[in-house]
Computed example of a mutant assay.
Amino acid sequence: TSVEVGTRFNAQHVQGSIAAYRIDIKDAQLYQGDSVGYQSLRNVGDSRSTGVEFDLAWSLSRQWTLNASGFINRARFTRYVASSACSACGSNDVPFAPRHGLRLGLQGDLSSPVGNWRPQLNARYLGAQYFDTANTLRQAAYTLVDAALAWQVRPDTELAFYVHNLTDRAYRTYAFSGGPQLGNFAQVASGRTLGVTLSYAY
């Protein structure tokens, strides 16, 4: 059950929205189990998320636009029934639910005799989060920077170059416990990634 209230606004150079929400989940499902390869999806209890989110677009000029979006979120268990996995998790944070985040982006649209150029620069900040219901496996906050440059060769053809995770930031996307004997395991995100795309519309 989710309830959301907010507003949108549209001025000459600025557009955006802001909203507050509350989400109640009954019988939330998460993977449980200490043995590697033997985790199963189980109903662990009820949870409640409350927060605020916003987005903003500001036209700096005809060629440049600044975008910003973010959220503040509090997601906690209100009832926890998987006591065999964690006996004191009744008010813990819900896994994979950061408390806050922010994204800033700058986009351009520049015309030239050889076609349009569209540069982009984005910075994404994500707050700390837990990967388990016991709140022992924690990923600290991190910031990622992405960049791209698209060249519209013709009205129907676009060539784009991009770099994801420009600063080669190391962080985890998933983690779980293998039990007292095996320890903890984590999946590390991709490092700096470069690529090129070619798009053709017909």
Results as ranks from 00 to 15, higher is better:
188 V>K: 03
91 S>P: 00
200 Y>C: 11
111 S>F: 06
124 R>F: 05
3 V>Y: 15
199 S>Y: 06
152 Q>T: 09
70 G>M: 08
136 T>W: 04
151 W>E: 02
35 S>K: 12
68 A>L: 02
97 A>S: 13
34 D>C: 08
190 S>W: 00
63 Q>I: 12
163 V>Q: 08
104 L>D: 13
41 L>Q: 07
187 Q>L: 11
169 R>Y: 04
19 A>F: 04
146 D>S: 03
78 T>Q: 01
61 S>F: 10
190 S>T: 05
110 L>A: 09
101 G>W: 10
47 S>K: 03
132 D>S: 11
45 G>P: 05
146 D>M: 07
163 V>C: 09
140 A>T: 14
95 P>I: 12
145 V>T: 07
130 Y>G: 15
50 T>K: 07
9 F>Q: 01
199 S>R: 14
168 D>M: 07
79 R>W: 01
53 E>G: 02
159 L>T: 09
180 P>S: 12
98 P>T: 05
69 S>R: 15
113 P>I: 04
56 L>M: 15
36 V>P: 00
185 F>A: 03
179 G>T: 02
27 D>V: 05
132 D>R: 06
136 T>M: 02
52 V>E: 10
179 G>E: 01
84 S>N: 05
73 N>S: 14
190 S>I: 02
121 L>H: 08
67 N>Y: 15
155 P>Y: 00
102 L>H: 05
128 A>F: 04
189 A>P: 01
194 L>Q: 10
119 P>T: 07
104 L>E: 11
165 N>K: 08
190 S>E: 08
27 D>P: 06
101 G>T: 12
143 T>M: 02
175 A>T: 04
43 N>V: 04
81 V>D: 15
162 Y>H: 04
152 Q>D: 13
147 A>K: 03
75 A>S: 12
23 I>Q: 15
62 R>E: 11
68 A>W: 00
14 V>H: 01
29 Q>T: 07
60 L>P: 00
78 T>K: 04
118 R>V: 11
197 T>M: 08
21 Y>W: 06
95 P>Q: 12
13 H>W: 09
